[in-house]
Each structure stands twice: as C-alpha cells, then as structure tokens.
Write a protein that binds this DNA or RNA. Structure first.
Lengths: 225, 225
DNA sequence: ATTGAAGTATAAAGATTTTATAAAACTATT
DNA sequence: AATAGTTTTATAAAATCTTTATACTTCAAT
C-alpha cells in the first residue's frame, strides 16, 4: 500500500517543519503550502488524503480556504487553530471541517486524529446511488426503490432517509438529526423526529412493528442498518 | 531498548532495598527517595516511567506528594500502603493514583501491576476507536462490538463502559464513577453502580460469573482490563 | 469450625422517562 | 376549496432507571 498523502497549509515555517518531521516518521507523504493561494492550488492539482489547515493565514482567512476547497474536495480537513478561538472552530466545523486541533498539540493526539480522519474518508460515500439491503436510493433523481418497487417519499422523509443512509451503522442523536433536517433552533423538537421516523418506517420497513432498518436507541437516537 | 525507570518514594530502608532488588533483577532502572521533598525533586528533575509512592512518609503526607506531582506528571503512580487503610487508598485513587498495593506484597503481584501500569502510559488514547480484547468501542458512532457482533447498550451502560475503557487498568473508586456518571450528589448511591455493573457484565462478559473485563476491587471500586 | 459484619451480586417491583401512533390543526400550493 | 405535507397535541405502550429485598461471598473474631 502506498503512503497516505497529507497537505499542510500553514504560514509558520516552524510548525510546518514540526508537522513534516512527525508525519514523515509515521509514514505519511507530506505536501506543504505557506499561503492560502498555494494551498488551494496544491489541493486541486494533487488531492491528498487529508488537509491540515491553519486558520490564521496571511493572504486569505482559513474559513474562505475551507469553503473554496469544500466545493470540490470531500475528504477530511483538520483545522489547526490557536487556543481560545472557539467561535472560529465552530464556524469551521459548520463549513465542513472534519476535526480540529488547538496549538500547541501533542503529537500522539495529532496522529490519533489523523488516523481517525483518514479512516473516515474511506467510509464517506459520495456515490449518488446507494444500495442498502432491499433499498436502493438515487439521490439526484430523488427516488427510492424497495424490492424494485418505487416508494413515494415526501421531501422531509427523503432528507431523513438520506441522512440515515449516509451514516449507516452509526447512532445518530436526536439533536444531530434535528439539526441536520430542521436546522439549528429545532433541536429540542424531538417529537417531529418521532412522527417522521414513524411514517418512514411504514414505507421502508417490511414490518414497521419490527423495524430492521431504523433501530431505536432509547434515550439517544436512532441507528440505520 | 533502554530500561524503564522507576522512582521509589518510601522512608523505610528495608522496603526500598527489597524493591530495589526485585526491580533491578527484572530489568528496571531504580531511583530512590526517602522523603517527600527528595522524591518530588527527583520526579521533577528526572521524570521516571512509574512512581511507587508510600503513603506514610515522615515529612509530608503521601497524599500531598501525589497532588503536587500530579500537576505536571501524567504517568502512572502506584500507591504503597499498609493494610486496613482503605480510606487512604480511596483518597489517593481519587487524587489520580493509578493503582495500589498493600504491604506486605508478593513480588509477582508487584511486578504484574508495574507492567500493567507502564503499559498504560503508552496507550493513553486519543483515538476514537478503542479495541480491548474481544471488545471494540467506537465512541463517536456510539457502537460496541463483541466478537464483531453489535451489542445494544442503554445510554447509562454506554457511558459507564466508555468511562471504564478510557481508564483501562486504573482502579476507579465507587465515588469517582458515581460522580462521573450520575453527577455530584449521587456519590453515595453505590447500589446504582452495582446494578449497572451487573447489567453491563451480562452484556460484555463471556461468563458474567467470572468477569474478565470489569474486576471488583472490594471496598474500593472497580478496575477495567 | 462457627458466627457476624461488611461488602457485593442479582432479581424484581415501582417510578419515571422515552417512544410510537393516531389524529387534529395548521400551512402552502395548486 | 381541495390537496399534500408539516407541525402539534394527546395518549398508550415500551424501555429504562431507581429502589427495595434478599441472598451470596469474604474474612476476621470468637
């Protein structure tokens, strides 16, 4: 297996050097950029497995870089930020960052988070057609087939199903699902979710009384299998 | 590989000598201190892989030494104490001790505890996926696999398991666990803990009557291995 | 060896929380 | 106004947590 490639976008040479040494001695192939412009170019010309992005760049804010990159790059991006910049971190996570590290960081932690982020890459499925047992979901066409029969789902039901399918196997908390489907501000309306899980089960489960796809985790949320 | 260094802080010369002989013949490099002051200085100037700390020191209580050391030292500290001093042991464990031994101790047990404590140093885990023998725990996905089979845990059982796993090898006192899971205010409800350890054992242990993972430390708490 | 005390394990009853479901009320679209 | 879809409300059922009761285990003192 070839080495995983990591792109570092950070303007501080010492940090880049430190990261380079740590990563190369752990068998990663490292690319470096000192400016936002350079970083975006490198990421585009040579998409790496993972990007380490400093938020404090000289020519353009890290947030802008993240947004730009995210329009075509869908692997992991870990944010590097100084301490006490929680607002920055929250913004970055909302813009699609995978994880974050605050400087100074211990190399054990850095490496663990990188491993975890890269592991996640391989499970992100951006295919437009997803098959899950007897279900077949075509996201752009907005159609769902169960045993080759077309199902009629409402907009919300479809969004919910796509969210479940994209996170197959994971337990999604009520909060998370509500945030994703209804937006922040509706995170306490657990009852919406119950109603829609109910209608979705009626359509996708062979026996809605014994759900095989949408599993309840009482007190936490749901898991799709 | 160089020898692991162990610092002994104990005022009794016979005990120090006994420990020295046992440890050096098992390929450890031994440092010694007879007083609290000396011990703290040595630990600071030359941080060892492990500290063996006697609670009954002449100049300062072992508890104070532990607190002081813990502000900068994050490797394992094993407490040496006389028998029937459970209150002392509980206090020390809550102050961050890793494990304890009551004098007189058998050298086989001493060595086993030391090996386990040193192993712990290197496996402090920032990773999100943790493997523990036949158990696989994915914290963000909130899933637990036993021999690749998914286990269904309730919210409280999962919290408890995560706490145990994150402190693998450490002795956790009842008080500490109750505080972490049920919050301060429930620290006297040891019975809750007994019930939940029982249900958790039923799910994660191959034979709940002979627990291999959650070990009872009578009068003190539990240890996860 | 027997007893008693302290600590532990387990089952099960009771209380509480969470979930599922139906249905009513509301909203937007045609 | 009819329709489809969403948001609320109400309530029964299920799951989980708390509490109680009881039995077991360990170990020191008689």
């Amino acid at each position: 297996m070839s080495k995983s490639e990591i792109l570092i976008i950070d303007d501080e040479p010492q940090i880049r050097k430190l990261l380079e040494i740590t990563l190369e001695s752990n068998d990663y192939r490292v690319w470096q950029a000192a400016t936002a412009k350079e970083g975006i170019l490198l990421a585009a010309s040579h998409p790496p497995e993972l990007i380490l992005l400093d938020l404090g760049l000289p020519d353009k804010s890290g947030h802008e870089v993240l947004k730009e990159i995210r329009s075509w790059y869908n692997k992991s991006v870990i944010i590097l930020s100084v301490q006490n910049s929680e607002a920055d971190i929250v913004l970055a996570l909302d813009n699609g960052a995978t994880d974050y590290l605050t400087k100074p960081f211990r190399s054990a932690e850095l490496l663990a988070r990188i491993r975890s982020a890269i592991r996640r890459n391989s499970t992100i499925n951006f295919d437009n057609k997803i098959t899950c047992g007897d279900l077949e979901i075509d996201i752009p066409a907005r159609t769902v087939l169960k045993n080759k029969e077309i199902l009629k789902l409402t907009a919300t039901e479809f969004k919910l199903l796509v969210l479940f399918v994209k996170n197959e196997g994971r337990v999604l908390t009520h909060q998370f699902i509500l945030k994703e489907i209804w937006g922040i501000g509706s995170q306490t309306e657990t009852q919406y979710l119950r109603v829609f899980v109910g209608t979705l089960r009626k359509k996708i489960e062979t026996d809605p009384n014994i759900p095989q796809h949408i599993i309840t985790q009482s007190g936490i949320g749901y898991r799709f299998v």
